[in-house]
Amino acid sequence: MNIVVCIKQVPKSDNIQLDEQTGKIKRDGVEAVLNHCDEYAIEEAVRLKEKLPAKVIAVTMGPPSAQSILREAISRGADEGFLLSDKAFGGADVLATAYTLSQGIKTICSANIIICGKESSDGETSQVAPALAHFLNVACVPFVNKIDSIDSSAIKLERVFENGYAVIESTLPVLISVTKDINIPRIASLKGKMNAKKAEIKTLDISAINADENRTGLTGSPTRVANMFSAGNAHPVSCEKLTGDAKSMAKSLVEKLSAAGII
């Protein structure tokens, strides 16, 4: 069984800066790390590998420096890492990213399960996973917080909603995106780190994955950022501390919320 984990290199979350001209995140010269949600995707793939005979293949699209997150995935238990890297992939939105990833995955292996993190800490769209499932023409279950059972042909899992969860059974192949509740990612072992150090990361360019250049990168991206603003500046916040006993504070809070039209 082949389990593909899609991962992303993102700017370290305490260091995100925006380009005010383009509305995009500045990536040059900013420390880049493995997207936090993807740690859970890798862990879940490795846990499945420990139950089944399976190979875990980590895939990312990014610049050559994104090799480092593939090595991190290997240090956490993935078997192989593939980097989809080409100047023609730069500036991709959700659509172009999902298309490029799908071409890469089709080139690499016949995937039985594709696992993505719930979202990336930079884009936060949660849309790449379903779009990728579309391009791969496989079933899609987003926001999975538990895998109940799996065998070589089917999977049973729990998908969370705001007010509950659904138990879903799917045949394979399937694409899932996982939440942070699904597991506690392991700390990379020394032997894993040694494997990662020695591992050969295979780089695939646009011709290797047989992709249409009109559908990749900025050219293949219909999304344009119309406007960008800091939420803090748009809605100035003022704070007030209520004092007194619980009853009087509750009364005062109700009055203030009513006056503000919130309740």
Binding site: I187, A188, S189, L190, K193, M194, K197
Partner: peptide
């Protein structure tokens, strides 16, 4: 060495996170 730094980093992560 690189391997010694690897051990330090691993121990540091466990100490901080766990």
């Amino acid at each position: 060495s690189e391997e010694e730094l690897m051990m330090v980093e691993t121990a540091r992560t466990i100490a901080a996170e766990k």
